[in-house]
């Protein structure tokens, strides 16, 4: 796994780029931009469902979400650039592992939301309170994404091999 990731990074030139003087901070800046896009679109949609900014139709706010998806895609790409360039700093890192788990929960929550919850949200009027199920999905989404950012920031704190996670 570790060797395969590293080989990919070296074969594609990502490894060389990330180890140039400005490679790493440039990709980090893009990663933060992607995160801000996600908070500004999906996060605000969640906040509206949780009861803030009543008067904005939830359907209208949802039109921002494709930009959040773009931010997510940007972060998958930039995230893979970090991961494949120094895989041992991520694979054995408890903060990274928890981050992936939270992303999986957020992903399931998205599937659940569009399958079971979105229909009444889409047709609700501007001042409407979101249904209870939508509030729950929004709270899960918010907590997961904030947790993902916290874990992302903690990756440098639990830097292997000084902090090997206790279950690996």
């Amino acid at each position: 796994m570790l060797d395969a990731l590293l080989a990919f990074s070296q074969g594609t030139g990502i490894h060389a780029f990330m180890h140039t003087a400005w490679g790493w901070p440039i990709v980090e800046s893009l990663h933060f931009l992607g995160l801000s896009l996600l908070i500004g679109t999906v996060g605000l949609f969640d906040l509206r469902m949780l009861g803030s900014a009543r008067g904005i139709p939830m359907r209208a706010l949802h039109r921002l979400v494709p930009w959040g998806v773009a931010g997510y895609a940007l972060n998958v790409v930039t995230g893979l650039m970090f991961l494949t360039s120094v895989p041992d700093q991520y694979l054995y890192n408890p903060a990274f592992q928890i981050k992936l788990a939270l992303m999986a929960v957020a992903g399931l929550n998205v599937a659940f939301f569009y399958r079971f919850v979105f229909a009444p949200v889409k047709t609700a009027n501007a001042a409407a309170d979101a249904p209870r199920s939508a509030k729950i999905a929004a709270a899960i989404s918010m907590s997961c994404w904030i947790g993902v950012i916290v874990c992302g920031r903690l990756i440098t704190y639990y830097r292997p091999p000084y902090h090997w996670c206790f279950w690996c």
Partner: peptide, 9 residues
């Protein structure tokens, strides 16, 4: 992230 996020939106 929240400051920039609201501004981006």
């Amino acid at each position: 992230g929240f400051v920039v996020g609201v501004h981006v939106a």
